[in-house]
Amino acid sequence: MDNQMAKNTLSPRRRIVNLLVHALLAVLALIWVLPIVWIVLTSFRAEPGAYTKTFLPQGYTLNNYVKLLTDRNVLNFPKMFRNTLIISIFSCTISTFFVLSVAYSLSRMRFAFRRPYMNLAMILGLFPGFMTMVAQYFILKAMGFTEGSSIRIGLIVVYSACTGLGFQISKGFFDTIPRSIDEAAVMDGATQWQVFTRITLPLSKPIVIYTVMTSFIAPWVDFVFAKVLCRANSDQFTVAIGLWNMLQKEYIYQWYTCFAAGAVLISIPIALLFLYMQRFYVEGMSGAVKG
C-alpha cells in the first residue's frame, strides 16, 4: 500500500519540497539568463550610451547592427572579423595537428622522452601564462613579426605554438580506445602512421571535433595577447580587441550598443558550437578522470 501511494501521489511534504525546489530553480535560472537577455535587448536599444535611466530600453532599432557592420572609419569591425577569421583558421589547423599528434604519441607510443615530456608539461603549466608574454613579444620582434600585416603571423604563432602542452583531454580519450585494436591493425600490416590516420582518428571523431572547435574559438576570445602584439596597429585588430576598445572611455558612449550587438554576433556561433560540443566536453571530462 505504502509503496503504491508513494508512486502515484506524492506525500504532501514531498510536494511542498518539490514546489520549493522548482521555485528555487526558476529564480536561479532567471539570475543566470537575465544578463544575457539584457545584453540582447541592449543590442537593439535605440538610445545611445552605456548608462541609461531605465533598465529596459525605451525604443528598439536595428541600427546598432548596421553601424557595427558598415562603419569602417572609427572601429572597422568587418576588417577585425576578417583578421580574426584568417588567424583562427590557420592557428586552428596547426593547433589541431599539434594537440592530436602529441596526444597520440603520448598515449600510444613508448619512448624515453615520454615521461619527462609529461612532467615538463605539468611544470610549465604552473607558470602564469602572462609571464612569457613579454618575452614572447621580444622574440617575435626579433623575428620581425610585430610590424604591419606580419602581426597576423605573430598572433597565429602565439595561439598555436605551445598547444602541444594541452594534450590531456585528447590523450585521455585516446587512452580509452582498446590497445588490442591497434595491435590488430599492426598484425594486419599497418604502420603506426596508418594506425593513427586510419584507426585512431576515425574512432576519435568527438575529440577531433572538440579540438578543432576549441582551437578555432581561442583567437575570438583572447584580447590580452592580441592587445600586446597589435598595440596601436588598428588595422590588425581582432574582434576581441575591437569589442574591448568599444568599452574604453573614448568610444563607450557612441559604441556601447554596438558592443552589445557585436557581443551577440560573436556569441551566437560560439554558443552554438559550445552547445554542440558540451557532450564531448562532458565525455572527455568523465573519461579523463576515470582513466
Partner: peptide
C-alpha cells in the same frame, strides 16, 4: 538555462 551562460564567451 545554465549552460547558456557558459556558452557566451567569458570575456564578453
Amino acid at each position: 538555462c545554465f549552460v547558456l551562460s557558459v556558452a557566451v564567451p567569458q570575456f564578453v
